[in-house]
């Protein structure tokens, strides 16, 4: 999860960064399940993995894909 967070920060391709945040959410929902919080895990899986990712992808498609320095 920490690796996915660092990758999402350093990569220049914004689509890959979005996939990185999606991976963070996926790992987070598994961790929530292991911490005996199934409600929160379900919410995180539905909102963080699916909806949030698609909103980022739409925003990237409407703007520029690559981050330049």
């Amino acid at each position: 999860m920490i690796g996915a967070a660092i990758y999402a920060i350093i990569t220049k391709d914004l689509i890959f960064a979005t996939i990185g945040t999606s991976l963070i959410s996926l790992a987070l929902s598994v961790i929530f399940y292991l911490l005996h919080a199934p409600d929160v895990a379900l919410t995180e899986a539905a909102i963080g993995v699916a909806l949030s990712t698609i909103v980022f992808v739409i925003a990237v498609r409407n703007t520029k894909r690559y981050e330049e320095d």
């Binding site: 895990a41 379900l42 919410t43 539905a46 699916a50 909806l51 698609i54």
Partner: peptide, 17 residues
Amino acid sequence: TPGGGFQGGAIIATGFL
């Protein structure tokens, strides 16, 4: 069971998506 209005609403929105 685990779940509720927020989760169900999000799942339904995923279907429309």
